[in-house]
């Protein structure tokens, strides 16, 4: 479904992503985790054709993604980390635009958008300009737009930021059912609880390089932890230790 081989991206002399290789299977929810600046967004942008790769190969549904791969894009969706959509359109007009671009049938569009708008409690805001939406509402509108044409693969960059608890729960349920139906989700998030709850497999990237890939139990083994949450595993794998606040305070207080 998604196959990445030796993918690299450099900006001048800076390596944003180095020799990244992984495979995501059909019907899988794949979480792509890493600290800030580790190369998550750059990778997701290369996968969706928004940024050109420096080297390596990407194959999605047997095709190479790129700016002009229109037929591939019809099978994909992307939810960016910032819902920067045209503020001067109403929610309805934005969805009309997306449905038209994906060439959905009128009937399919009405059915799917109705389902998703109810799921995210957006039906009442359709006639309002997007610029008057809160961040969370924009995010829900973008997610609705991304899901309604039923893409085979969906890329989500921090989709749950700004979502209220009810919408967050509904999104999780929807995504679980969505992958059960044979579709694929590629997700980046800093909410490790979300990944722990819904991801089938997890890749941890650090300073542009893959640290580990596998299920949570496989990652535990790789990190040398017998038990522990994904947060513990994540911190162990990237070699970051929790700062003991009381220790540092006491050091400060004695001038150390």
């Amino acid at each position: 479904m998604i196959e990445v081989r030796n993918l690299s991206k450099t900006y001048g002399h800076k390596h944003a992503v180095r020799n990244l290789s992984f495979k995501v299977n059909e019907g899988e929810l794949f979480a792509f985790l890493g600290p800030n600046g580790s190369g998550k967004s750059t990778t997701i942008k290369m996968l969706t054709g928004l940024t050109e790769k420096s080297s390596g190969d990407i194959e999605i549904l047997g095709q190479q993604p790129g700016i002009n791969s229109v037929s591939l894009k019809r099978e994909l969706s992307f939810v960016p980390d910032t819902p920067d959509i045209m503020g001067k359109l109403t929610g309805k007009e934005y969805l009309d635009f997306v449905a038209s671009v994906y060439q959905m049938s009128q009937e399919n569009y009405e059915d799917k958008s109705k389902e998703l708008l109810e799921l995210f409690d957006l039906s009442g805001a359709l006639g309002t300009l997007v610029e008057e939406y809160s961040h969370g509402m924009r995010q829900k509108l973008v997610i609705t737009g991304a899901l309604m044409h039923e893409p085979k693969v969906i890329f989500m960059d921090e989709p749950n930021v700004g979502l209220d608890p009810k919408s967050n729960r509904n999104l999780k349920s929807y995504l679980k059912k969505y992958v059960d139906d044979g579709n694929t989700v590629f997700l980046t998030t800093h909410t490790l609880g979300l990944a722990e709850e819904i991801a089938d497999r997890i890749l941890i990237i650090y300073e542009g390089e893959e640290k580990a890939t596998g299920t949570l139990s496989e990652l535990r083994t790789k990190s040398g932890l017998v038990s522990g949450s994904l947060e513990d595993v994540f911190l162990a794998l990237i070699g970051e230790e929790e700062v003991n606040v009381s220790d540092s305070e006491s050091r400060d207080s004695i001038g150390g």
Partner: peptide
């Protein structure tokens, strides 16, 4: 303020 209708409409790509 409400800026328009809420009936959903699909258009051609260029039209959209």
């Amino acid at each position: 303020r409400k800026a328009g209708s809420t009936s959903l409409d699909v258009n051609s790509v260029k039209g959209a």
